[in-house]
């Protein structure tokens, strides 16, 4: 019985949050895109191509943030066997994979005109590609093992092992010589981005964050339904007539 108490509570909470999150998402995207295109100057070096930054950097931040959410969920699932935590991990993975793919693709489209190449095998680009494969591996493990409990445990272990990649991504530009520029926003001596360009960047980052909350809550509800169906199916198989 207590297995269902939590999901029901979660659904109520999600339904209460969702309208606000959707509203915030729409407003933040409107403000972010407006400032990104109309209320911010071209860069003194990069010209108009700097506008790719407003979707590239937030996508990369989300890729790492979502991985940490997935790792915390996996940790909770492994240690405390909390059923919702396992579902949370499952719900985050496609979002993380998408943001990682977007970070890579928009980065390539920015790199070609600025650096002169789409791709280079340096520490930053390679470690982000590994992050993408970690997401894919996590999702693949869920798919490939029949027993949901075993699949969840295997996927959670993979997610935890992959955590080591996160500091590598963050510090790759400081540890090794690379083509990628060093951090501009999160650094000890303050941002090196002009305020007029920092605003659209932060607004787009907030919009992506709101988008994550909205789609994550949808996917959580989806996972809860899926779980309910699986339980119902099992109950039907074991006691087909007059079980209740």
């Amino acid at each position: 019985m207590h297995r269902f108490a939590n999901p029901a509570q979660f659904n109520r909470l999600a339904d209460a949050i969702l309208p606000w999150a959707i509203g915030a998402m729409v407003l933040l995207f409107a403000a972010g895109l407006y400032t990104a295109f109309f209320a911010s100057p071209p860069d003194y070096q990069q010209g108009e191509s700097v506008r790719v930054m407003y979707i590239h950097a937030p996508a990369a931040w989300m890729a790492m943030f979502i991985y940490m959410v997935m790792a915390v969920a996996s940790f909770t699932a492994l240690v405390w066997r909390h059923p919702l935590a396992l579902l949370a991990g499952r719900a985050t993975a496609p979002l993380g994979a998408m943001f990682t793919a977007l970070a890579l693709l928009t980065g390539m489209l920015w790199g070609k005109p600025m650096w002169g190449t789409y791709w280079v095998w340096d520490g930053r680009l390679t470690s982000v590609l590994i992050l993408f494969f970690l997401y894919l591996g996590y999702m693949a493990l869920w798919q490939s093992v029949e027993d949901e409990e075993k699949a969840g445990r295997a996927a959670s272990i993979l997610a935890l092992v992959g955590v080591v990649n996160i500091p590598i991504i963050k510090f790759s530009v400081d540890w090794w010589s690379t083509l990628h520029q060093p951090a501009s926003v999160i650094r000890l001596d303050g941002p090196t981005i002009d305020g007029s360009m920092l605003l659209p960047l932060l607004l787009m980052a907030a919009a992506y964050q709101a988008y994550f909350i909205v789609v994550f809550l949808w996917r959580m509800k989806l996972e809860i339904n899926r779980r309910k169906l699986a339980v119902a199916r099992q109950a039907m198989m074991h006691a087909p007539v007059g079980a209740e």
């Binding site: 100057p41 071209p42 860069d43 003194y44 070096q45 990069q46 700097v50 930054m53 600025m114 650096w115 002169g116 190449t117 280079v120 083509l179 520029q181 060093p182 951090a183 501009s184 650094r187 090196t192 981005i193 002009d194 007029s196 360009m197």
Partner: peptide, 18 residues
């Protein structure tokens, strides 16, 4: 045989110098 440009961490409007 190839030359790639490396960008630094400064972003600012034209006319202002880092």
């Amino acid at each position: 045989s190839t030359v790639l440009a490396k960008h630094d961490e400064n972003y600012r409007p034209p006319g202002t110098m880092p």
